[in-house]
């Protein structure tokens, strides 16, 4: 993450109201809470792989927030584009999954049923697949495992 610190007071909350300088093109922020982001994160990682890698390489070059604004805008636009596509194609499944994550402590293993429906829908409509790098080969990924040991404790 950035090395910047949010100016948060313990007594009052203050947000600097100054708008961004005109030289920076405006970009719509992603505006999602953690649960939808977590639900879509593997698809964001796959769909926006090039932009994300470009941005991270840029950040590696220089950690100045000003240095990678252009790449950052591309990253955000790409993610927004994907979210829009998800909303158009798999709205119900997406909503079901992230609402489940929201309730179930954001644990993937507690929402496998919803996740399977969401993943299959995204694969059919958008051709994106959930790949977890570094998973052991020769056995199904943890999200596709039938009858896992770690199951939700409550139905």
């Amino acid at each position: 993450m950035t090395a910047t610190r949010d100016p948060v007071f313990t007594s009052t909350k203050f947000v600097d109201p100054t708008p961004a300088p005109k030289s920076v093109p405006p970009v719509e922020e992603i505006g999602l809470t953690s649960a939808p982001l977590k639900s879509a994160s593997f698809f964001i990682g796959q769909y926006c792989k090039d932009y994300n890698a470009d941005f991270m390489l840029c950040k590696n070059e220089n950690n100045d927030p000003e240095h990678c604004l252009k790449e950052g805008r591309k990253v955000t636009r790409c993610a927004l584009d994907l979210i829009k596509k998800l909303r158009e194609n798999c709205d119900a499944e997406f909503e079901k999954h992230w609402k489940c994550l929201d309730v179930k402590n954001q644990d993937y293993y507690q929402c496998r049923k919803e996740e399977r429906q969401f993943n299959s829908c995204v694969f059919e409509k958008l051709g994106l697949q959930k790949n977890i790098p570094g998973s052991p080969e020769g056995q199904p990924q943890i999200n596709e495992k039938r009858n896992p040991i770690m199951k939700p404790h409550q139905k």
């Binding site: 993450m1 950035t2 910047t4 990682g45």
Partner: peptide, 24 residues
């Protein structure tokens, strides 16, 4: 990995805000 995939997106957003505050 779900968090790693989100890092660029969240960093980009916080960078924009940091830049805006820095300029101000």
């Amino acid at each position: 990995w779900s968090r790693i995939h989100l890092i660029p997106l969240l960093t980009a957003e916080s960078d924009r805000d940091a830049f805006r505050r820095q300029q101000a």
